[in-house]
Structure formats: C-alpha cells, structure tokens
C-alpha cells in the first residue's frame, strides 16, 4: 500500500514537471515569432538617407538616380519579394513549426501519456512484481510447508512402518506360538472331538432306548391333563439296574406320579452302554414326564 502511494506521488510529480517543460517550450516559441516581424519593417528606413548630385550629372545622375531608383526599385522589389519570400518562408516556417509544435505537443502528450502509461505500467509491473513476489513467497511458504509436511509424514510413516513391523513381528510370533500350541493341543482335541462325537451318538442311542423301554411300561392314566408334568431322578447301577427312583417334582396328580415310577421300576434293567466311561453319563438320569400321547 505504502509503496503504491509513493508511486502515485512520483508519477504525479513527473507529470507536473513534464507539463511545466511543455509550457516553457510553448513560451519560447512565442518569442521566436515577434523578432521575425520587426526585422521585416526596419529595412526600408535606412535606405532613404543616401541621395542628391548635378544635372547631366544630375541627368546622368538623374538617370543614374533613376537607374538607381529603378535599381533600387528592383532591389526594393527583390527585397520586397525576398521579404515576401522570407515572410512566406517565415509563415511556412511558422506553420511548419506550428506543425512541429503540434507534433511535438502530440509527441509530448504521447510521451506524457506514454510515460504515464509507463508509470502505470511500471506501477502495475511493480505491483505485479510485488504480487508475484508475494505469490512466490506464499508459494514458497506453501512449498516449505508441504515439504515440511511431507517430511513429517515421511517421518511418521517411517515410525508407523517401524511400529507395524514390530507389531507384525509380534503377531507372527504370537501366531507361531498359537500354531505351536494348537499343534500341541490338536492331537488331543481331535481325539476329544472324535471321542465326543462317538459319545454323543452313543448317548443319543441309549437315551432313545431308555425312553422307549420306560414308555413301553408306562400305562398312561386316562383323562390325565396333558399339561401336567412330573420330574423323577433315577440312579442306575452298571448294567442298567434301577437302584433308586425318587420324585423330584410331583405333577400334583399322585396317580400320574406313581404310574411313571412304576414304569421305570418295571423297565429295570434299563438299556445302558457297556463302555464304563460312557455309562458314567447314565449313572443319574433326570426324567421329565409329560402325558402327551401314546406310543405309535
């Protein structure tokens, strides 16, 4: 801003100086015209003082004078012509000069304009330059910032990568450890799974066999509310012998309760697996009884 103001002042001063110069020049040209006019009028005054001689002589003189006069006249004429010519010349000169002045003026104006323009341009240029400089500076700053950022990012990335690397290594290590563990446990769990599956199917089979054995003995009391339920606890000896049947929860219907207990007793020995480990699952049964329907 400050710079711009200074520029404006400079250009104004420059313009004023230029106008001053133009004014001086115009003044000079006015002085120039006045002497050309005075020169033309002072010439005939000095010529009148050198005359008068005898007759013959006078004649001659007269003649001479006449001749002289004529001569003078000629001369005068020539002079007049010359003056005319001069005047014309001067006029021409003046026109030329005027023209030249006009040209000059226009040139000067042009110049001034040019200078003004130039000044403006220069100012503009300066401004542009400044702008450019500013932009450049900003650009530079941005570049710097970016560079800094990139640098930082790079640094961070590096750090992260390093961290990730460590982590990955850790993970890998862990996985390896886990894999090792699994490998260690794998055999055991596979064995267990197989055993469990076998156990489950064996258990399901014997569960169904037990339910059928009891159901075949269970004479369902008629007219019993189908929503009733009884819970029994049954203890079995190896081989399926019913050691004990106890009522965990009565249905509230003594006939229903007893009908099931009798059925369990009559179904003894219940079908149980021979494998002692599988049989262990059958040592104690929890039997829920609902009188829903008849065996098909």
């Amino acid at each position: 801003m400050k710079q711009e103001k200074e520029h404006l002042r400079k250009s104004i001063v420059l313009t004023l100086v230029l106008y001053g110069a133009v004014a001086v020049l115009l003044g000079v040209s006015l002085h120039f015209r006045t002497p050309s006019v005075t020169v033309a009028t002072s010439q005939p005054v000095s010529i009148v003082k050198a005359v008068t001689v005898n007759q013959s002589q006078v004649q001659e003189e007269m003649h001479k004078i006449q001749e002289q006069r004529q001569e003078q006249q000629r001369k005068e004429q020539a002079h007049q012509q010359y003056l005319k010519h001069l005047a014309q010349q001067a006029r021409q000169q003046r026109v030329r000069e005027q023209k030249q002045m006009a040209i000059l003026k226009t040139q000067q104006m042009k110049l001034a304009k040019q200078e003004k323009m130039e000044a403006i341009r220069a100012h503009q240029k300066l401004m542009d330059l400044q702008k450019q400089q500013k932009a450049e500076q900003q650009k530079l700053a941005a570049m710097h910032a970016r560079a800094e950022q990139q640098k930082q990012a790079a640094l961070k990335k590096q750090a992260d990568e390093a961290k990730a690397k460590v982590l990955a290594q850790k993970k890998q290590q862990l996985a390896a450890e886990k894999a090792l563990e699994q490998q260690i446990n794998g055999e055991q769990s596979r064995l267990n799974a197989a055993r469990n599956q076998e156990l489950m199917s064996e258990m399901a089979k014997y569960k169904a066999l037990i339910l059928n054995a009891i159901g075949q003995q269970w004479i369902m009391p008629k007219n019993t509310d189908k929503n009733l339920s009884t819970e029994l606890s049954i203890r079995l000896a190896p081989g399926g012998t019913v050691l004990d049947v106890s009522l965990l929860r009565s249905s509230g219907n003594a006939v229903l309760d007893r009908s099931v207990i009798t059925a369990v007793r009559k179904a003894s020995p219940l079908p149980v697996p021979r494998d002692p480990t599988v049989f262990n699952q059958f040592r104690e049964l929890h039997l829920v009884v609902r009188p829903e329907g008849l065996l098909g």
Partner: peptide, 21 residues
C-alpha cells in the same frame, strides 16, 4: 484339555406311554 469323567445328570423327556390294561 481333558474331558473329565464327570458324573453329570442326564436329562430325558418322556411324553409317550401305552394304553394297556
């Protein structure tokens, strides 16, 4: 690791009987 030889209670549900005398 080991399936212990537990003495768990086995749950059964009886819903059907017979209509015998």
């Amino acid at each position: 690791v080991f399936v212990p030889p537990v003495q768990a209670v086995l749950n059964l549900e009886l819903t059907q009987g017979v209509d015998n005398a």
